[in-house]
């Protein structure tokens, strides 16, 4: 049986968004490869660290998961509907609930044992110290 045209169209969109991905492979916010919601993610780099900053308003700390596998950082979790939503009728729903997942291929090797994360005002900050061998090195040149 032929796949429906819709299926082809969505496959094409998936391919398009893959091709548009930046070099470190962060999945685009509109990516259709994953059906959950996609929080905004910023990525920074300095001499010592790679830092990911993710907007995750209204989460519980324990509902956020971090993992690192083969140089890819994955931030995932689930935002459960508030208890209040059960005793009221939603007349407008713009907040996303349910699962989310973001994966980023890190531009350098990091020291897995020294990764730290903080969650404040609905913003998750993950600090990944670069592995010693990945740090830029200053070379002393003696000029005679």
């Amino acid at each position: 049986m032929w796949p429906s045209l819709d299926r082809w169209a969505s496959l094409r969109n998936d391919l398009d968004s893959l091709l548009e991905m930046p070099f470190w492979g962060a999945s685009g916010r509109q990516s259709q490869l994953f059906s959950g919601w996609t929080p905004a993610l910023d990525l920074y780099q300095n001499n010592d660290n790679i830092v990911a900053v993710v907007e995750l308003p209204g989460m519980r700390k324990e509902d956020i998961e971090l993992s690192l596998h083969d140089g890819t950082l994955t931030i995932s979790g689930e935002r459960k509907e508030e208890a209040s939503q059960e005793n009221g009728n939603a007349t407008r729903t713009e907040r996303s609930t349910g699962k989310f997942r973001r994966s980023i291929t890190l531009p350098t090797q990091v020291d897995v044992n020294k990764i730290t994360a903080s969650y404040k005002d609905g913003i998750l900050t993950v600090t990944l110290p670069k592995a010693e061998e990945a740090k830029p090195r200053q070379i002393q040149i003696n000029l005679n």
């Binding site: 916010r29 910023d42 990525l43 920074y44 300095n46 900053v53 980023i104 531009p107 404040k120 900050t125």
Partner: peptide
């Protein structure tokens, strides 16, 4: 008041 991170921004969605 976003966290202030030193260095280069590689990617921004916020």
């Amino acid at each position: 008041s976003m966290p202030v991170i030193e260095g280069t921004r590689l990617h921004q969605e916020s």
